[in-house]
C-alpha cells in the first residue's frame, strides 16, 4: 500500500529526498514530464497544453527534529522542525540522517523526579537523543550537525478501516494525489508534491510562481478533535465524516464560487463531506492564492486524529472519499463548471 510506504518514509521539512524518490519511482510512468526545482518541489505534468491548467498540490514534508549540537557525553541536542508539542517527544524512537541511525529520546526516570517536577511539561531543552554512544567523538562519526530526525513508526491497520501511523499530514494527501495522477482528466494536470509546508508554506509559492495555473487544488490533512473531553463545536473535523472543506484559515478564505463548486460536486456524487471548523493555521493555498495576480484555490483535507504526533489515526473511508471528491472536482472543472476569472 503506497500510503503506508509514504507514511513510513522519512521527510522532515527541508529533507524530503526519500519521499521524493519514492514518488518519482512510483509515478514517473504516469506523467509526460517530471521535474524538480531548487527547493525540491516535485512536479508531474500530464495532458500538456490542455485547458484549463490545474495544479493539484500535496506537501510531502512532515514535522521532525534537527540535530543542533552534541553533549560531551555523546547525547544529541535537537530542535524541532515545524510545530510539535514538546510533550509528545519523551520516550520515542527516532531515526537520524541519511543512514537513518536509530536513537531514542529518553526521559528522567519517574522515580528520580521530585513531586513538583512530575507535574511539569518536559521541554525540548531538557530532552536529548541517545544513540547509545559514550562520547561526542563517537556521536560525531554517526550524525552531523544539521541532520534531520523523524519518528520511527510502522503504519498499521486498526479499528474500523483505520490506519495508525505518523506523517499522515500530509502523506495521506500525497497518496491521494498519486492516485489522481494515474487517472485521466480532460485538462492539464500538474501534480506538485511540495516541500517545506510545515515551516511556513515555503515550497508552494515557488511552485505556483513557476506553473501559474488557472486553478489550484490543495489536498491536505487536518486535525480531527472529535474525542472525549472536547465539545462538538471544537471538533475541527470528525473522523469518518468525509473530506473537510476549508472555508477560512489564517492564510486563506475560500471564495464563494469555490465553496459552491466543492459542495455541489460532493452532493451530486453523494460523497460525504464536512467543513473544517477551525479558522486558524494555514495550508499551501494561503501562499498559492496570493501568487502572481491571484490564483483561484481550493483546499480539501483528510481528517486525522493526533496530528503532528508519532501516533495518529486516519480513516480509510475518509481517504477514499477525499480521492473521490478531488476526482469529482477535477472533472467538474474540466467540464467548465467554474468561472476562472472575476467574481463580482
Amino acid at each position: 500500500m503506497l500510503l503506508k510506504r509514504l507514511s513510513e518514509a522519512s521527510g522532515a521539512s527541508g529533507d524530503e529526498g526519500e519521499v521524493r524518490s519514492l514518488l518519482k519511482e512510483e509515478l514517473a510512468l504516469h506523467a509526460e514530464e517530471v521535474t524538480t526545482d531548487a527547493l525540491g518541489n516535485l512536479y508531474f505534468k500530464k495532458g500538456i497544453g490542455r485547458k484549463p491548467r490545474v495544479m493539484v498540490v500535496a506537501h510531502m514534508d512532515e514535522v521532525g527534529l534537527m540535530v543542533v549540537g552534541y553533549e560531551k557525553s555523546g547525547l544529541l541536542r535537537v530542535a524541532k522542525v515545524g510545530s510539535i508539542d514538546d510533550r509528545v517527544l519523551a520516550s520515542k524512537v527516532v531515526a537520524i540522517g541519511k543512514d537513518r541511525v536509530p536513537g531514542v529520546i529518553g526521559a528522567k526516570a519517574v522515580h528520580l523526579q521530585k513531586p513538583d517536577e512530575r507535574t511539569k511539561a518536559i521541554k525540548i531543552d531538557n530532552l536529548y537523543i541517545d544513540l547509545g554512544v559514550r562520547s561526542q567523538e563517537e556521536a560525531e562519526k554517526l550524525v552531523k550537525i544539521g541532520d534531520y530526525g523523524t519518528f520511527t513508526v510502522t503504519a498499521r491497520e486498526a479499528g474500523d478501516n483505520c490506519l495508525i501511523g505518523k506523517a499522515f499530514d500530509n502523506r495521506a494527501g500525497c497518496a491521494v494525489l498519486a492516485e489522481l495522477l494515474k487517472e485521466e482528466f480532460a485538462l492539464e494536470l500538474n501534480a506538485v508534491f511540495t516541500v517545506q509546508e510545515e515551516v511556513g508554506l515555503r515550497g508552494a509559492g515557488v511552485a505556483a510562481y513557476r506553473l501559474h495555473p488557472d486553478l489550484a487544488l490543495v489536498i491536505e490533512t487536518t486535525a480531527a478533535a472529535d474525542v472525549v473531553g472536547s465539545k462538538e463545536s471544537a471538533y475541527v473535523t470528525k473522523l469518518g465524516d468525509g473530506p473537510a472543506l476549508t472555508l477560512m484559515d489564517s492564510t486563506y478564505i475560500a471564495p464563494q464560487q469555490i465553496v459552491d463548486l466543492v459542495v455541489e460536486t460532493a452532493e451530486k456524487l453523494n460523497i460525504p463531506y464536512q467543513f473544517r471548523r477551525l479558522t486558524t493555521a494555514g495550508t499551501d493555498a494561503g501562499i498559492i492564492s496570493q501568487t502572481h495576480a491571484g490564483i483561484l484555490s481550493a483546499v480539501i483535507s483528510i481528517p486525522c486524529r493526533y496530528i503532528h504526533s508519532p501516533a495518529s489515526i486516519i480513516n480509510l473511508d475518509d481517504w477514499q472519499n477525499t480521492l473521490r471528491l478531488a476526482r469529482g472536482i477535477l472533472n467538474a472543472v474540466a467540464e467548465g463548471g467554474l468561472r476562472l476569472e472575476g467574481i463580482a
Binding site: 521539512s13 527541508g14 526545482d37 531548487a38 527547493l39 518541489n41 527534529l65 534537527m66 540535530v67 543542533v68 549540537g69 530542535a79 524541532k80 522542525v81 515545524g82 552531523k144 550537525i145 544539521g146 515551516v199 511556513g200 515555503r202 515550497g203 509559492g205 515557488v206 510562481y209 513557476r210
Partner: peptide, 21 residues
C-alpha cells in the same frame, strides 16, 4: 556549523522563495 530548523531571520529567508525559488 549552525543548524537552523526553519526559515532564518536573515535575507536568506527572502532570497530562497523569490520567483521560482
Amino acid at each position: 556549523l549552525e543548524a537552523f530548523p526553519g526559515p532564518t531571520g536573515t535575507d536568506a529567508r527572502a532570497i530562497q522563495v523569490t520567483r521560482g525559488g
